[in-house]
Structure formats: structure tokens, C-alpha cells
């Protein structure tokens, strides 16, 4: 495995958890798959469609998201939104993220002065 491939693997692993957090953060209001993709892309979160769509579905089966089909427009769209449980989890996850981030920042800062 060359180092570029290795780096790509590390980035995938690094993203695995944080992407979930990014997606949850945008679902306090209902969104459908493609709109979510666009919002995230505008905010510089690179998330591929083939990762997002399965993720939404999985979060729904886990009870974190709930969905409803909107058929009022010319094409039906599936809208996702945080459930009550999802909101609790999202808040807890956000706090954890901030805590960890400050710890890691401290570590990385240390390293650069070494």
C-alpha cells in the first residue's frame, strides 16, 4: 500500500464519526437527501452521495432520525429530521466533540513546539 492510499484510509477513518455529527447538525429542520448534500457542500463538508444516502437510512433504523415522504411537489421526496432521542444524542455528541477537540488541539499544539 503506498503512502497516498494509506493517507486516504486514515482520512476515511477520521471522517467516519465526524460526518455523522455534521449530518445530525443539519437535521433540526427537515431535509431531503440532495438538499442536505448541497447544504453540507456549501459549508465545505465533503460528503459523497453514496455515503450520505445509506447513512440517513441507517440513522433512521437506529431511531435517531425520522422520515416522511412529501408528495405535494411534482416529485416525491423523503424528508429526514431528528427524533427526540436524536436531539438528545446530538447534544451529547456535540459536547463530546468540543471536549475532545480541545484536548486534541492541546496535543497538536504541544507537538508543533517540540
Amino acid at each position: 500500500m503506498d503512502s497516498r492510499e494509506l493517507l486516504a484510509n486514515f482520512i476515511t477513518e477520521l471522517n467516519r464519526g465526524t460526518l455523522t455529527l455534521c449530518v445530525l447538525s443539519q437535521l433540526t429542520t427537515p431535509q431531503y437527501g440532495y438538499s442536505l448534500l448541497q447544504i453540507l457542500s456549501e459549508k465545505h463538508i465533503a460528503l459523497e452521495a453514496n455515503t450520505l444516502y445509506p447513512m440517513l437510512r441507517r440513522l433512521e433504523t437506529q431511531g435517531v432520525l425520522e422520515s416522511s415522504w412529501n408528495t405535494s411537489e411534482n416529485r416525491p421526496r423523503k424528508f429526514y429530521q431528528l427524533t427526540e432521542e436524536g436531539k438528545t444524542i446530538f447534544t451529547a455528541l456535540t459536547n463530546k466533540w468540543k471536549e475532545q477537540q480541545s484536548h486534541i488541539e492541546a496535543l497538536l499544539g504541544e507537538e508543533s513546539h517540540a
Partner: peptide, 28 residues
């Protein structure tokens, strides 16, 4: 049903063959 809606969302109205192909390729 969901995949169909999502893929159609990613495409413009009346997409060309090439646009369909590119979108599908991007999905893996």
C-alpha cells in the same frame, strides 16, 4: 423509492445520457 428520488434530485430536468452516466458513476 428513496434512491430513485435522490438520483433524480441530483440530475437536472430532462438530463442527457451523459449527465445520467456521470451521476451514476459518481455513486460507485
Amino acid at each position: 423509492k428513496e434512491l430513485e428520488a435522490n438520483i433524480l434530485d441530483m440530475l437536472p430536468e430532462n438530463p442527457s445520457d451523459n449527465e445520467v452516466e456521470q451521476t451514476l458513476l459518481s455513486m460507485g
